[in-house]
Protein backbone atom coordinates (compact mmCIF):
# COMPACT_ATOMS: atom_id res chain seq x y z
CA UNK A 1 0.00 0.00 0.00
CA UNK A 2 1.39 3.39 -0.90
CA UNK A 3 1.58 6.20 1.60
CA UNK A 4 -1.09 8.16 -0.21
CA UNK A 5 -3.48 5.27 -0.18
CA UNK A 6 -2.76 4.52 3.43
CA UNK A 7 -3.39 8.07 4.55
CA UNK A 8 -6.59 8.10 2.57
CA UNK A 9 -7.55 4.87 4.25
CA UNK A 10 -6.87 6.46 7.62
CA UNK A 11 -9.05 9.40 6.73
CA UNK A 12 -12.04 7.18 5.84
CA UNK A 13 -14.50 7.25 8.67
CA UNK A 14 -16.29 4.22 9.94
CA UNK A 15 -19.38 4.32 12.09
CA UNK A 16 -19.39 2.89 15.58
CA UNK A 17 -22.20 2.17 18.00
CA UNK A 18 -21.41 3.23 21.55
CA UNK A 19 -22.95 1.73 24.65
CA UNK A 20 -22.30 1.94 28.38
CA UNK A 21 -21.38 -0.68 30.90
CA UNK A 22 -21.39 0.90 34.35
CA UNK A 23 -19.31 4.06 34.10
CA UNK A 24 -17.46 3.02 30.97
CA UNK A 25 -18.32 3.72 27.38
CA UNK A 26 -17.62 1.17 24.66
CA UNK A 27 -17.75 1.36 20.88
CA UNK A 28 -18.26 -1.42 18.38
CA UNK A 29 -18.33 -1.45 14.58
CA UNK A 30 -21.92 -0.69 13.59
CA UNK A 31 -21.76 -3.15 10.73
CA UNK A 32 -21.74 -5.99 13.27
CA UNK A 33 -25.01 -4.79 14.79
CA UNK A 34 -28.10 -6.48 13.46
CA UNK A 35 -30.66 -4.89 15.72
CA UNK A 36 -31.33 -3.57 19.20
CA UNK A 37 -34.21 -4.97 21.20
CA UNK A 38 -35.59 -5.32 24.69
CA UNK A 39 -34.63 -8.14 27.02
CA UNK A 40 -37.33 -10.78 27.29
CA UNK A 41 -38.23 -14.44 26.87
CA UNK A 42 -34.77 -15.79 27.53
CA UNK A 43 -34.62 -19.52 28.16
CA UNK A 44 -32.00 -20.38 30.75
CA UNK A 45 -29.45 -23.06 29.95
CA UNK A 46 -28.19 -25.16 32.81
CA UNK A 47 -24.53 -25.74 33.55
CA UNK A 48 -23.27 -22.68 31.71
CA UNK A 49 -21.47 -19.63 33.19
CA UNK A 50 -23.77 -17.07 34.80
CA UNK A 51 -23.11 -14.41 32.15
CA UNK A 52 -24.59 -16.69 29.50
CA UNK A 53 -28.18 -15.85 30.16
CA UNK A 54 -29.60 -18.46 27.85
CA UNK A 55 -31.12 -18.55 24.40
CA UNK A 56 -33.83 -16.61 22.63
CA UNK A 57 -35.91 -17.18 19.54
CA UNK A 58 -34.89 -14.69 16.87
CA UNK A 59 -37.48 -15.33 14.15
CA UNK A 60 -36.98 -19.05 14.25
CA UNK A 61 -33.27 -19.08 14.97
CA UNK A 62 -31.91 -20.01 18.39
CA UNK A 63 -29.51 -17.29 19.52
CA UNK A 64 -27.47 -17.19 22.74
CA UNK A 65 -27.57 -14.14 25.00
CA UNK A 66 -24.63 -12.95 27.07
CA UNK A 67 -24.77 -10.28 29.75
CA UNK A 68 -21.65 -8.15 29.39
CA UNK A 69 -22.29 -6.56 32.79
CA UNK A 70 -21.91 -9.95 34.44
CA UNK A 71 -19.03 -10.97 32.24
CA UNK A 72 -16.97 -7.87 33.11
CA UNK A 73 -18.47 -7.16 36.53
CA UNK A 74 -19.63 -3.70 35.54
CA UNK A 75 -22.89 -1.97 36.39
CA UNK A 76 -25.93 -3.57 37.90
CA UNK A 77 -27.26 -6.67 36.29
CA UNK A 78 -30.94 -5.89 36.65
CA UNK A 79 -33.54 -6.90 34.14
CA UNK A 80 -36.52 -4.66 33.48
CA UNK A 81 -38.29 -3.02 30.57
CA UNK A 82 -35.31 -0.71 30.05
CA UNK A 83 -32.72 -3.48 29.71
CA UNK A 84 -31.43 -3.55 26.17
CA UNK A 85 -29.88 -6.25 24.10
CA UNK A 86 -27.69 -5.61 21.06
CA UNK A 87 -28.06 -8.40 18.52
CA UNK A 88 -24.71 -8.87 16.82
CA UNK A 89 -24.24 -10.54 13.48
CA UNK A 90 -20.68 -11.81 13.38
CA UNK A 91 -20.29 -13.52 10.06
CA UNK A 92 -21.72 -17.00 10.63
CA UNK A 93 -22.94 -16.36 14.17
CA UNK A 94 -25.66 -14.30 15.76
CA UNK A 95 -25.26 -13.37 19.42
CA UNK A 96 -27.35 -11.23 21.76
CA UNK A 97 -25.43 -8.96 24.14
CA UNK A 98 -27.01 -7.30 27.19
CA UNK A 99 -25.60 -3.85 28.07
CA UNK A 100 -26.61 -1.02 30.41
CA UNK A 101 -27.62 1.40 27.71
CA UNK A 102 -27.04 2.15 24.05
CA UNK A 103 -25.73 5.72 23.66
CA UNK A 104 -24.90 6.92 20.19
CA UNK A 105 -23.59 6.30 16.72
CA UNK A 106 -20.27 8.05 16.06
CA UNK A 107 -18.03 8.23 13.02
CA UNK A 108 -14.37 7.58 13.71
CA UNK A 109 -11.42 7.47 11.36
CA UNK A 110 -8.50 5.17 12.00
CA UNK A 111 -6.51 8.18 13.19
CA UNK A 112 -9.08 8.87 15.91
CA UNK A 113 -8.44 5.51 17.50
CA UNK A 114 -5.37 5.55 19.74
CA UNK A 115 -3.61 2.40 20.83
CA UNK A 116 -4.80 1.24 24.23
CA UNK A 117 -2.46 0.85 27.21
CA UNK A 118 -2.46 -2.51 28.97
CA UNK A 119 -5.47 -2.53 31.28
CA UNK A 120 -4.65 -5.58 33.27
CA UNK A 121 -6.97 -8.48 33.81
CA UNK A 122 -10.50 -7.05 33.27
CA UNK A 123 -10.38 -6.59 29.58
CA UNK A 124 -7.69 -8.32 27.64
CA UNK A 125 -6.12 -5.79 25.28
CA UNK A 126 -6.04 -8.30 22.47
CA UNK A 127 -9.79 -7.68 22.03
CA UNK A 128 -9.34 -3.90 21.92
CA UNK A 129 -8.82 -1.86 18.81
CA UNK A 130 -7.90 1.16 20.93
CA UNK A 131 -9.32 4.23 22.65
CA UNK A 132 -11.16 7.09 21.04
CA UNK A 133 -12.41 10.38 22.34
CA UNK A 134 -16.07 10.94 21.63
CA UNK A 135 -17.46 14.33 22.64
CA UNK A 136 -15.11 14.89 25.57
CA UNK A 137 -15.54 11.31 26.74
CA UNK A 138 -13.35 8.32 26.19
CA UNK A 139 -14.75 5.27 24.41
CA UNK A 140 -13.11 1.89 24.44
CA UNK A 141 -13.20 0.50 20.91
CA UNK A 142 -13.73 -3.26 21.05
CA UNK A 143 -13.06 -5.86 18.38
CA UNK A 144 -16.38 -7.51 19.15
CA UNK A 145 -16.02 -10.31 16.61
CA UNK A 146 -12.74 -11.44 18.14
CA UNK A 147 -14.11 -11.12 21.65
CA UNK A 148 -17.26 -13.12 21.00
CA UNK A 149 -15.46 -15.93 19.26
CA UNK A 150 -12.80 -16.13 21.95
CA UNK A 151 -12.44 -18.98 24.37
CA UNK A 152 -13.05 -16.53 27.24
CA UNK A 153 -16.69 -16.13 26.27
CA UNK A 154 -17.44 -19.84 26.08
CA UNK A 155 -19.85 -19.28 23.21
CA UNK A 156 -18.19 -21.61 20.75
CA UNK A 157 -17.16 -25.22 20.98
CA UNK A 158 -13.58 -25.50 22.07
CA UNK A 159 -11.49 -28.36 20.82
CA UNK A 160 -10.11 -28.98 24.28
CA UNK A 161 -13.50 -29.23 25.94
CA UNK A 162 -14.76 -31.38 23.09
CA UNK A 163 -12.14 -34.02 23.79
CA UNK A 164 -13.23 -34.51 27.40
Amino acid sequence: MTDAASSQHNQAKREFLTFTLGEEEYAIDILTVQEIRGYNAVTRIANTPDYIKGVINMRGVIVPVVDMRLKFHLGNATYDEFTVMIILNLGQRVVGMVVDAVSDVVALSADDIRPAPDFGATFDTQYLLGLASVAERMAIVVDIEKLMSSQDMGLVDQLSSEAV
Binding site: G60, V94, D157
Partner: peptide, 17 residues
Protein backbone atom coordinates in the same frame (compact mmCIF):
# COMPACT_ATOMS: atom_id res chain seq x y z
CA UNK B 1 -35.89 -29.45 16.11
CA UNK B 2 -33.50 -26.49 16.03
CA UNK B 3 -29.81 -26.78 16.53
CA UNK B 4 -28.16 -25.05 19.45
CA UNK B 5 -24.84 -25.24 17.69
CA UNK B 6 -25.68 -22.92 14.79
CA UNK B 7 -25.05 -19.85 16.89
CA UNK B 8 -24.00 -21.33 20.18
CA UNK B 9 -22.31 -24.57 21.11
CA UNK B 10 -23.16 -28.05 22.24
CA UNK B 11 -24.44 -28.20 25.80
CA UNK B 12 -24.15 -31.35 27.86
CA UNK B 13 -27.49 -33.00 28.46
CA UNK B 14 -29.27 -31.19 25.64
CA UNK B 15 -29.72 -32.44 22.10
CA UNK B 16 -31.21 -29.25 20.70
CA UNK B 17 -33.95 -26.73 21.17
Amino acid sequence: IKSLETHFRKVDGLSGA
